[in-house]
Simulated assay, not measured.
Amino acid sequence: MFVCQIMVAVVIWWKFGVSGETSQLPMWFAILVVIFICLFMAAFAWSWGPLGWLVPSEMSPLGIRSATQSITVSVNMLFTFLIAQLFLSLLCRMKFRLFFMFAFFITIMTCFIFFFLLETKNVPIENMSVVWSQHWFWKRFMLADGPEDNGKTLELV
Protein backbone atom coordinates (compact mmCIF):
# COMPACT_ATOMS: atom_id res chain seq x y z
CA MET A 1 0.00 0.00 0.00
CA PHE A 2 2.82 2.37 0.92
CA VAL A 3 4.67 1.71 -2.34
CA CYS A 4 1.51 2.23 -4.41
CA GLN A 5 0.77 5.57 -2.72
CA ILE A 6 4.34 6.73 -3.29
CA MET A 7 4.21 5.61 -6.94
CA VAL A 8 0.92 7.45 -7.57
CA ALA A 9 2.44 10.59 -6.06
CA VAL A 10 5.63 10.27 -8.10
CA VAL A 11 3.77 9.61 -11.36
CA ILE A 12 1.43 12.58 -10.83
CA TRP A 13 4.34 14.81 -9.82
CA TRP A 14 6.33 13.65 -12.83
CA LYS A 15 3.51 14.56 -15.22
CA PHE A 16 2.10 17.69 -13.60
CA GLY A 17 5.02 19.00 -11.61
CA VAL A 18 4.49 21.43 -8.78
CA SER A 19 2.44 23.87 -10.86
CA GLY A 20 -0.10 21.25 -11.90
CA GLU A 21 -0.47 22.58 -15.43
CA THR A 22 -0.68 20.30 -18.46
CA SER A 23 -2.56 20.35 -21.73
CA GLN A 24 -3.68 16.79 -22.35
CA LEU A 25 -2.91 13.50 -20.69
CA PRO A 26 -1.79 10.56 -22.79
CA MET A 27 -3.66 7.28 -22.37
CA TRP A 28 -0.62 5.42 -21.01
CA PHE A 29 -0.37 7.91 -18.16
CA ALA A 30 -3.97 7.38 -17.09
CA ILE A 31 -3.52 3.61 -17.33
CA LEU A 32 -0.40 3.78 -15.15
CA VAL A 33 -2.20 5.74 -12.44
CA VAL A 34 -5.20 3.36 -12.55
CA ILE A 35 -2.87 0.34 -12.27
CA PHE A 36 -1.25 1.75 -9.11
CA ILE A 37 -4.66 2.60 -7.63
CA CYS A 38 -5.89 -0.94 -8.37
CA LEU A 39 -2.76 -2.42 -6.80
CA PHE A 40 -3.35 -0.23 -3.76
CA MET A 41 -6.93 -1.45 -3.46
CA ALA A 42 -5.82 -5.07 -3.80
CA ALA A 43 -3.21 -4.58 -1.08
CA PHE A 44 -5.80 -2.86 1.13
CA ALA A 45 -8.31 -5.67 0.67
CA TRP A 46 -5.65 -8.22 1.53
CA SER A 47 -4.22 -6.43 4.57
CA TRP A 48 -5.87 -3.43 6.27
CA GLY A 49 -9.39 -3.84 4.93
CA PRO A 50 -10.53 -6.77 7.07
CA LEU A 51 -8.82 -5.53 10.24
CA GLY A 52 -11.71 -3.24 11.15
CA TRP A 53 -13.92 -6.30 11.37
CA LEU A 54 -11.42 -8.83 12.71
CA VAL A 55 -9.54 -7.02 15.48
CA PRO A 56 -12.51 -5.74 17.53
CA SER A 57 -14.18 -9.14 17.44
CA GLU A 58 -11.02 -10.87 18.68
CA MET A 59 -9.90 -8.39 21.31
CA SER A 60 -13.21 -7.78 23.05
CA PRO A 61 -14.70 -9.96 25.78
CA LEU A 62 -17.98 -11.64 24.86
CA GLY A 63 -20.04 -9.30 27.06
CA ILE A 64 -19.11 -6.16 25.12
CA ARG A 65 -18.23 -7.61 21.72
CA SER A 66 -21.38 -6.35 19.97
CA ALA A 67 -20.94 -2.83 21.39
CA THR A 68 -17.25 -2.77 20.41
CA GLN A 69 -18.06 -3.96 16.91
CA SER A 70 -20.83 -1.39 16.40
CA ILE A 71 -18.62 1.48 17.59
CA THR A 72 -15.78 0.34 15.34
CA VAL A 73 -18.01 0.07 12.28
CA SER A 74 -19.60 3.47 12.99
CA VAL A 75 -16.23 5.20 13.33
CA ASN A 76 -14.97 3.43 10.20
CA MET A 77 -17.99 4.56 8.18
CA LEU A 78 -17.70 8.13 9.52
CA PHE A 79 -14.07 8.46 8.45
CA THR A 80 -14.75 6.77 5.11
CA PHE A 81 -17.45 9.38 4.50
CA LEU A 82 -15.15 12.23 5.52
CA ILE A 83 -12.31 11.06 3.28
CA ALA A 84 -14.70 10.61 0.35
CA GLN A 85 -16.11 14.11 0.83
CA LEU A 86 -12.75 15.81 1.27
CA PHE A 87 -10.68 13.90 -1.29
CA LEU A 88 -11.32 16.09 -4.35
CA SER A 89 -10.81 19.40 -2.57
CA LEU A 90 -7.64 18.06 -0.92
CA LEU A 91 -6.39 16.78 -4.28
CA CYS A 92 -6.92 20.22 -5.84
CA ARG A 93 -5.06 21.94 -3.02
CA MET A 94 -2.30 19.44 -2.25
CA LYS A 95 -1.93 17.82 -5.69
CA PHE A 96 0.57 14.95 -5.60
CA ARG A 97 1.43 15.71 -1.96
CA LEU A 98 -1.91 14.21 -0.91
CA PHE A 99 -0.64 10.73 -1.80
CA PHE A 100 2.55 11.34 0.17
CA MET A 101 0.31 12.25 3.12
CA PHE A 102 -1.62 8.98 2.68
CA ALA A 103 1.69 7.07 2.58
CA PHE A 104 2.73 8.84 5.79
CA PHE A 105 -0.49 7.72 7.50
CA ILE A 106 0.06 4.15 6.29
CA THR A 107 3.45 4.30 8.01
CA ILE A 108 1.88 5.64 11.21
CA MET A 109 -0.80 2.92 11.13
CA THR A 110 1.81 0.21 10.64
CA CYS A 111 3.87 1.47 13.56
CA PHE A 112 0.76 1.61 15.75
CA ILE A 113 -0.15 -1.98 14.92
CA PHE A 114 3.41 -3.17 15.45
CA PHE A 115 3.79 -1.57 18.89
CA PHE A 116 0.25 -1.51 20.30
CA LEU A 117 -1.67 -4.50 18.96
CA LEU A 118 -0.97 -7.87 20.46
CA GLU A 119 -0.91 -11.21 18.72
CA THR A 120 -3.96 -13.13 19.92
CA LYS A 121 -3.37 -16.37 18.05
CA ASN A 122 -4.39 -19.44 20.13
CA VAL A 123 -5.63 -17.23 23.00
CA PRO A 124 -9.17 -18.10 24.13
CA ILE A 125 -11.61 -15.18 24.14
CA GLU A 126 -12.06 -15.64 27.91
CA ASN A 127 -8.36 -14.84 28.48
CA MET A 128 -8.29 -11.70 26.35
CA SER A 129 -8.24 -9.37 29.37
CA VAL A 130 -5.22 -11.27 30.72
CA VAL A 131 -3.36 -10.73 27.46
CA TRP A 132 -4.11 -7.02 27.38
CA SER A 133 -3.17 -6.61 31.05
CA GLN A 134 0.35 -7.88 30.27
CA HIS A 135 1.05 -5.43 27.43
CA TRP A 136 3.55 -2.67 28.24
CA PHE A 137 1.12 0.12 27.30
CA TRP A 138 -2.41 -1.24 27.76
CA LYS A 139 -1.81 -2.73 31.22
CA ARG A 140 -2.25 0.69 32.85
CA PHE A 141 -5.84 0.76 31.55
CA MET A 142 -6.70 -2.74 32.78
CA LEU A 143 -7.98 -3.67 36.21
CA ALA A 144 -5.46 -5.62 38.25
CA ASP A 145 -6.82 -8.99 39.36
CA GLY A 146 -10.17 -8.41 37.74
CA PRO A 147 -12.90 -11.04 37.88
CA GLU A 148 -11.88 -12.49 34.52
CA ASP A 149 -8.17 -13.01 35.09
CA ASN A 150 -8.04 -14.04 38.80
CA GLY A 151 -4.36 -13.12 38.94
CA LYS A 152 -3.36 -15.61 36.23
CA THR A 153 -0.52 -14.82 33.89
CA LEU A 154 -0.37 -15.87 30.29
CA GLU A 155 2.77 -16.34 28.28
CA LEU A 156 2.79 -14.23 25.12
CA VAL A 157 4.53 -15.65 22.09
Rank of each mutant, 00 (worst) to 15 (best):
G151R: 12
I35W: 11
C92R: 13
F96G: 06
V10D: 10
S89Q: 09
T68Q: 05
M128V: 10
K152Y: 12
W48R: 13
P50I: 04
R93K: 14
S60F: 01
L88H: 08
M101I: 13
I31K: 04
N76Y: 07
V34C: 01
F36W: 12
S47W: 12
S70T: 03
V55I: 05
D149P: 08
S129W: 01
W13A: 14
I31R: 00
M142D: 12
C92H: 10
W136I: 06
A42P: 04
M109R: 06
M59Y: 04
N122R: 11
I37F: 14
K121Y: 04
F104Y: 08
G20F: 03
W48F: 09
V55S: 13
R140D: 05
S133D: 09
M59F: 06
T110Q: 04
V3I: 00
S57L: 05
S74E: 07
C92Y: 03
F116Y: 06
W53N: 05
M128K: 01
T153V: 15
N122T: 08
M101T: 14
I6P: 06
V123E: 04
V157Q: 14
F16G: 15
M41L: 06
N127V: 00
L154F: 11
L118H: 11
P124D: 14
I83A: 15
V34H: 04
L118W: 07
R65W: 00
F116H: 10
A42Y: 07
S19V: 03
V3R: 11
L143S: 06
G63R: 02
M7C: 02
E58G: 09
V157K: 13
F102P: 01
V34T: 05
F105N: 12
F137D: 01
T120D: 03
I64V: 14
A42V: 15
C92T: 04
P56L: 03
I71N: 12
